[in-house]
Amino acid sequence: MPIPPAERLFPLAYDPGVSPKGGGLPGLDVLRTVVNSINLFGIVAVVGALAVSLAVWAWGHHTGGHQAEANGKKGATVAAGAALGLGAANGIVEFFSGLGTQIH
């Protein structure tokens, strides 16, 4: 008698019992500080990139340099997207982590 597909897949549904818990390893506070510092450096770099991109955009517009103007627009858009991503990083990870815990 053949084995039903659901029973064949049941052994693949093993729960290893792993869940994230704070305080499991030493150095977690140091790692958080390092990641926060990296995020801060990223935000500062984005501010600089946005300023340069806006200056290139304005320079290209006023001198008739269409390619410089287009590159300035692209740079400003990328910098704005990077700022959005850096600012929302915690929320994005928390959102998808919460979704992941609902999968059974």
Rank of each mutant, 00 (worst) to 15 (best):
I38D: 03
A70C: 14
L54W: 06
P2N: 15
R32K: 04
V93D: 11
A83L: 14
A79F: 02
I3S: 03
I103E: 09
W57S: 08
V35P: 01
G85A: 15
V78M: 09
F96R: 05
L12R: 06
H66T: 04
L40N: 10
A68H: 11
L54F: 09
V78I: 15
A82M: 14
S19K: 09
L9V: 06
L40E: 11
P2M: 05
A88S: 13
A88T: 09
A6M: 09
L86G: 02
V44D: 03
P11S: 05
P16G: 06
L84W: 01
F10D: 04
Q102I: 09
F10K: 15
V18Y: 02
P2C: 12
I38F: 10
G24S: 12
T101H: 15
A89H: 04
V52T: 11
L54T: 08
N71A: 15
A13K: 12
L9D: 10
G42H: 12
A55N: 08
A68P: 12
G81D: 01
G65F: 10
A51V: 15
G75W: 00
G85Y: 12
V34T: 10
L99N: 05
V78P: 03
A49G: 14
L25M: 15
L9G: 00
S53D: 06
L84S: 02
A89R: 07
P26D: 14
G64A: 02
L50F: 10
G17H: 03
S53A: 10
P2F: 07
G98Q: 07
W59K: 05
Q102P: 08
A68F: 12
L99V: 00
H61P: 03
V18N: 02
T63F: 08
A45M: 10
A13Y: 06
F95C: 07
G98H: 03
